[in-house]
Every structure is written in C-alpha cells, then in structure tokens.
Simulated assay, not measured.
Amino acid sequence: MNRKDILGNEIKSECVGCAIVRGEVKLPGGIIYDGKSIILAADPEIPIPGFLIITSKRHIQSFAELTVDERAEIGNTIAIAERAIKDLKIAETVTLVQEERSKHFHIWIFPNQEWMLEKFGYGLQYLRDINAFAKDNASDADIENVIRTAEEIKKYIESEDKYD
C-alpha cells in the first residue's frame, strides 16, 4: 500500500508504524520524543499543527498488548503532549483516539482547534472529515506551520523535563 506523507514523500511500507520506527518516514519536524518503547511525532499524513501520534516501537495492535512500563510511558507522554498543546496555545482541548483497526498500535493526540469546531462541529464523528479537509486544502504555509509547531512542542518537552 503506497501512501504519501504531507511532505510529498511516498510511504512504501505495508505498515506505516513500523516504517516510522525504522526511520523510513520523514516526520514533519522530526521525532518530538524518542522513548524506550514509543515515538511521539507530528502525524506524517495529516497537515494539522499539533496533531501528534504516539507510535509503539513494537509491532502490536492493541492497548491490551502493552506492558506495564509501556502503558506508563504512554500515559506520561500523553500528559506532557497535552500540556504542550494547551500551554503553547495550539488548542484548548484535545481528543485521544486509539482503534484496533490499524495494523500498528498508535494513539492520536488530536488538537481541537477553533476552525475545526466552526466548520465541522465537536466530536469523534468529525475527525475523518477534518483530516480529509486538511489534506485537500493544505498550503505550503500550512505544512511549514506543522513543522514549526512540532519543533515548538519538542522544545517545550525538552525544557520542561517532564519525563524524569
């Protein structure tokens, strides 16, 4: 299954999560957090500033397959990423999504931005429409904003030192 990231690069892997872990996907703004068992980065396919993904380094599908340590690292990562999104004024609220339909475990940390609420409404039922709209209408400036926002979140996390 060939897909393109927001930078126009082809993702040639059957499993995007594994390709991210192997470094085969160019992540907008780079890796925000490279943990023991997870990677936090801007979503490589959806051009929305502050839209983050937590990807498991192991090829698993379900939250139930995570170890206790992996669950703890994910919880800490969600907390600091959410604080960054709010403190940096990217969004006032976030939506967390994890579904087993995907071949590789990941969690979306989706920033509920004002334009989304005005155009689509509030709730999970609108996320696919918002994502499609963002992909179909992204400008070069939007892509640059995704990269800049990922870099700002990385600096926030590094400066706050919340993982200790």
Rank of each mutant, 00 (worst) to 15 (best):
N145I: 00
E10Y: 13
E160C: 11
V25D: 03
F133D: 14
I107S: 01
K119C: 08
T77N: 06
E70M: 02
I90V: 15
H59G: 03
E65L: 03
C18A: 12
L117Y: 03
V16G: 06
D5E: 10
A42L: 00
I48D: 05
V25C: 07
E151H: 01
R101A: 14
K103S: 05
F51H: 11
R3V: 13
L7R: 02
S13L: 01
E158F: 11
G30D: 06
I74E: 12
E118V: 13
H104K: 10
A91R: 00
L7M: 05
W108N: 01
G35H: 10
D5H: 04
L127M: 13
I60Y: 04
E118H: 01
G50M: 06
K26E: 15
Y33Q: 08
P44V: 12
L40C: 07
G123R: 07
A72H: 02
E82Q: 08
E158S: 11
T149C: 06
A41H: 15
Q113I: 15
D140S: 09
G23Q: 01
V68K: 14
S62D: 10
K4A: 10
R22F: 10
K103V: 12
A64M: 12
M116R: 10
L7W: 02
K135E: 06
D140Y: 09
A84S: 15
V94E: 08
K12T: 14
F110Q: 03
N131A: 14
E99A: 13
I153Q: 05
V94Y: 02
M116Q: 13
F63K: 00
D43E: 15
P47M: 04
I38M: 14
A84R: 05
K119E: 15
K119H: 15
E73S: 00
K36Y: 08
L88C: 02
Y122Q: 13
K26T: 09
E14Q: 15
G121N: 11
E82I: 12
E118M: 09
S102V: 11
K36S: 05
K135D: 00
I53F: 01
R58P: 03
S102H: 03
P111N: 07
S13I: 06
R71G: 12
E92H: 11
L66I: 09
A19W: 06
G17Q: 07
K57F: 06
V21I: 14
V16A: 14
V21F: 10
G30A: 07
D69E: 14
G23A: 00
G8M: 02
F110K: 00
P44R: 04
Q125L: 06
I54Q: 02
N131M: 10
I147G: 04
E100V: 12
Y122N: 14
K162A: 11
L66F: 09
T95I: 12
L127D: 02
Q125K: 08
Y163I: 08
E151C: 02
K12N: 13
K4Y: 13
G50F: 03
S62V: 01
Q98R: 07
V146S: 04
A41M: 14
V25S: 05
L52N: 01
K57N: 04
I109G: 07
D161C: 00
S37A: 04
D161H: 10
V25F: 01
P47T: 02
P44W: 13
I147Q: 04
W115G: 05
